[in-house]
Design a protein around this nucleic acid. Structure first.
Lengths: 359, 359
DNA sequence: TTGGGTTGTGTGTTCGTTAACACAAAAGTA
DNA sequence: TACTTTTGTGTTAACGAACACACAACCCAA
């Protein structure tokens, strides 16, 4: 075996097959006009030599210009979406050289009509691919069908919809993240007590993923035979403070033995604020997302742990995935679960300022 | 302002300056042979148009071949080093297209002479850059000086040496990781008790980083006024099992109230094994690294948390950094701390199989 | 003032791939 | 048989940057 590290080029193959590079190129791109026996021979040589097209040369010559549509909530509706967009933008910047541009369609995450409106506008143009956060499950379905018929690859990120089959889903395993929250709370408790689960706005945005987290959380306790802990559940449909405080007061009065709270989304700072105002500092709190308000309470030890849903990393990964498919013609996984990062006061810094993982 | 998204090329500049591309090229590469007034004019146009060389075209034509030497422990001495090498190899593979090759110099991490020997061989060849794990502080120093004089950029990874100034250090903040370990142990304890810190092999390999972790750990307790916990320290210089068991028996007999153990490196599986054999299942254990043995005890709940030093990520980051400098001529940070990943039974999967962050 | 050197400039080739084009030979149609 | 069309193949100009080379125009010394 020769130790020639030089990669095989299209010219090498042409020489081996005793044809011109034009013929090899026609075979590579299935453009026809090649005699069957010649084609077979070329394909054999390609396989034998393990020819890998030089993506650099390809990118240089390619006039092909991919445009990808991104349908996500407007970043002004929260730093979570801001981070997600940032992750996408970062990857987009490096991919511009390969002739890829990104167009954003931003909707109001509180209004399903806003989503539908933007999705409609988007669908009028002809994009090479689509990235979206399908937070409104019912509204997504017709568009997903539409795009499937038009053969436009689309990937979901951040929200998984069980029955739909996009090209790929990038996000976290919600069940497992609930399970993890169970562990983090259980580890900090010794004596039997009550544990409160809080869902914020389970009605407005689609609550499916909150329930999946709840299931994972509950199963942690049942699977580990931890009957000594009493699991309570509270749904906060109204973020209006007095209403919220009243609901919390109510729960804590009827259940004075609550020693931990699990909030199933990023609104955990509300609970932290409530507890610190009521001087309930021995109640452990676990929730989601590195929002500035959450980080504030994390630093004050009012929140014990946050599970990072890593919006920036999700954004990066989603775009990177599509680029791999469109530009580099790589096969891409149908499902990509990002790691469940555990954040506490002592390691938060590295996640807030560090760059998101880019694969 | 025109909406011409087309990037400026060397030809555009040549046209604007009414010279040929050859002249522009000579200006860009400071190869002289250009009239001063013409040069000035070209430089002005370059600035005005914000010309950015097309790295794709550059990579295609460039016969420049960078060779980077990697001086790390032999992967056969533990999966930690295996992962580190894997991370480097992974990035190396994608950078091969840009004309970058990597040569490995593997040494025995238990023998400083082995390091010196390999470093000597390495220094005979002329590399464009060097990546190394400086586990033997004293032995590194003369080489570092040598390379500095020869102007060979070199980066340290995994082990930080306080007084030396390599081009860059990639790794973790050991102090903070000790601090984090303190939090993870403290969070799981309620009543006053003793906590044992265990250093493995503090003599053979350089112990500086173990001590820094210890300091961070201790300071967690002092800074948070946790005098109710008694910190004990044990140094295991011999991994020979009977000796180790004897030492552990001794400590646990004289201190029956030990409820947690912090192991400052990846050898934590020894402690987990000991404790599960002695049925001391209520003792919390925190240590480092996702070694197969450690993961085994993590799944069995014998280890509560592992802090992931992410050797694969460190390897990737180190090579990526040098490539950014050599190939893409980007400025690179002098210090790159990787995040402190907290791993527990419930999120371990995502770290074991997932790819390391590549920036 | 002829030869040798330096300075300043432009041209041409190269990298690997793509795709338009040219052009035979074969096949189909009247 | 005399055409048109199809099929199969090779050639070549991009893409943007790098660099070797060609070659004037000038300077200086013998």
């Amino acid at each position: 075996m020769k130790e020639t590290n030089k990669p095989v080029t299209i010219t090498d193959i042409a020489a081996k097959a005793k044809v011109s590079i034009g013929t090899v190129d026609r075979v590579l791109h299935k453009r026809g006009r090649v005699a069957t026996d010649v084609e077979k021979n070329i394909l054999r040589i390609i396989k034998e030599t393990d020819y890998q097209p030089n993506i650099i040369a390809r990118a240089l010559v390619s006039k092909k210009h991919y445009t990808i549509a991104v349908l996500i909530p407007d970043p002004s509706f929260g730093s979570y979406w801001f981070d997600a967009k940032q992750g996408i933008e970062k990857v987009a910047k490096t991919l511009k050289k390969y002739g890829l541009t990104v167009k954003y369609y931003l909707f109001n995450p509180d209004k399903s009509e806003s989503f539908t409106e933007q999705a409609n506008v988007l669908s009028k143009n002809n994009y090479d691919a689509i990235i979206l956060t399908p937070i409104f499950h019912n509204e997504v379905s017709p568009f997903s069908e539409l795009w499937k018929k038009a053969e436009i690859p689309h990937v979901f990120f951040n929200n998984e919809i069980p029955d739909y089959q996009p090209l790929s889903y990038i996000g976290q395993d919600n069940y497992q993240s609930g399970h993890l929250a169970g562990k983090l709370i259980h580890y900090g408790l010794t004596s039997p007590c009550s544990i409160l689960m809080v869902h914020f706005n389970p009605k407005i945005t689609n609550a499916a993923h909150l329930e999946i987290k709840e299931k994972g959380f509950r199963n942690y306790f049942t699977q580990n035979n931890l009957q000594q802990f009493d699991l309570l559940k509270l749904e906060i449909s109204d973020e209006y403070k007095p209403t919220f405080i009243k609901q919390m007061d109510n729960v804590f009065q009827t259940n004075p033995n609550i020693k931990a709270v699990f909030v199933t989304n990023g609104k955990v700072y509300n609970v932290a604020e409530y507890l610190s105002q009521k001087y309930l500092s021995d109640v452990k709190v676990v929730g989601y997302d590195l929002l500035p308000q959450n980080l504030h309470y994390l630093k004050q030890n009012s929140i014990s742990f946050l599970i990072n849903q890593n919006p920036k990393g999700q954004g990066s990964a989603a775009l990177q995935l599509l680029a791999d498919r469109l530009i580099f013609q790589k096969p891409i996984p149908q499902l990509k679960y990002l790691p469940l990062d555990i954040i506490t006061k002592e390691n938060a810094n590295y996640f807030v300022h560090s760059d998101a993982p880019v694969i």
